[in-house]
Amino acid sequence: MYAFAFHRPTSLRQAASLVGKLEDAKFIAGGHTLLPTMKQRLAGPANLIDLNAIPELAGIERSARAVTIGALTRHAEVAESKDVREAIPALAELAQMIGDPAVRHRGTLGGSVANNDPAADYPAACLGLAATIVTNKRKIAADDFFKGLFETALEEGEIVTRVSFPIPQRAGYMKFRNPASRYALVGVFVAKRAGEVRVAVTGAGANGVFRWKEAEERLKARFAAKSLVGLSHSPEGLNSDIHADAQYRAHLIGVMARRAVEAASNRE
């Protein structure tokens, strides 16, 4: 690691003020992406602002229409939350599939969303559920938030404070893990909402998380795994690496989408 100064604000206001005045500052929450990157000297911020001591970023709230989760909420807390499990069980299941138990005790929703790793799970849930990402400055629709590999609509110094997930009628998430890293080789989040069906795909796209519109249309006509039979995603625009070529990823999108619909349909 390169040298840095460490800051630990105890309020959102302090954090925002720090990032405004410090040179070359980065936020750290769970640290499970940033610290390994810093250890490899691929990142070297001069200032590190730890968000872990800010109480405003914690907590899960459930209303009639949405579950709103504080950015600092750990994956394990989401997975175990009674509110999340009742309202959006697919979201709890997704959180349970991230990393491993120790990683889930540290990694945070806000960190995952702000980082937008192309193989991360939460971006698929945000896009699939038409979530709203709330920052210290504004509210951003998930459709407008994820901009590409590790790129988001966040401006310099903007802090994700919480994410609001509208409660769907049904939803399911299926993930085929990269056998080595356990990140999503392909992850598909399917949600049936009033008036629309969303199918969000992570891990596969060369440009990060995306929606599979053809599948959405078919499922809107009839929300059943059978509706997807015979539909395959094009390999174009998909990742190809030593673990899976684009063709295999395209095939897995179809399989995972069908299985996610089955999971969603089989609930209750």
Partner: peptide, 16 residues
């Protein structure tokens, strides 16, 4: 164990 929960000590700063 950090405050009673398993964590990976290689991915947390001591200052945290």
């Amino acid at each position: 164990h950090l405050d009673g929960k398993a964590v990976k000590a290689c991915t947390i700063l001591a200052l945290q």
